[in-house]
């Protein structure tokens, strides 16, 4: 059930273990259907999210990158998502300089109980990436 023209695009998700990964689990347990383009990498915390991973993914051929963590003030490690927010906002603004549409990268907050919200986030982001189409590809 890929959105858009039927061809699957490659979306890499970086999720914190405590909130969003659990939220994605909750969505799964509740059988909340989602497009299949997304592949999730589990991180302990969005504070572990080096913006480099996002750039690397886009440069390596990913069409979109999604980061999701605990809501601000609800971080399992107190303040990891505050660091993430600052780093990722800055990283997002750098994307056009590198030739990427800044819409190819989003970061969001989804808690472990918000399965429904996770479904909406994945669906909306997948649609957004399909609207942008395949990302620029660079040979090694």
């Amino acid at each position: 059930m890929s959105a858009g023209n039927g061809r699957e695009l490659r979306i890499v998700g970086f999720l914190c273990n405590w909130c969003s990964y659990g939220g994605a689990d909750t969505a799964g347990v509740s059988r909340l259907g989602q497009p299949t383009d997304l592949r999730i990498i589990r991180l302990p915390c969005t504070g572990r999210m080096d913006p480099l991973f996002m750039f690397k993914a886009l440069l390596s051929g990913a069409d979109g990158v999604l980061v999701s963590g605990c809501h601000p003030r609800d971080c399992h490690y107190s303040e990891g998502n505050f660091y993430a927010r600052r780093r990722l906002e800055l990283a997002k603004r750098l994307l056009p300089t590198l030739g990427f549409d800044s819409g190819r990268f989003e970061y969001t907050w989804v808690s472990a109980s918000e399965g429904k919200r996770w479904q909406q986030v994945v669906t909306a982001f997948t649609e957004q990436i399909h609207t942008l189409g395949p990302g620029p590809k660079f040979s090694h």
Binding site: R10, V12, I41, F53, K56, S60, G61, P134, K137
Partner: peptide
């Protein structure tokens, strides 16, 4: 959760998309 590990995961997920394209 080292840099190399996460980058290896990124590569695993992206290389195929790259080849296909």
């Amino acid at each position: 959760f080292t840099d190399n590990q996460i980058l290896a995961e990124v590569n695993a997920l992206c290389q195929q998309a790259m080849e296909e394209s």
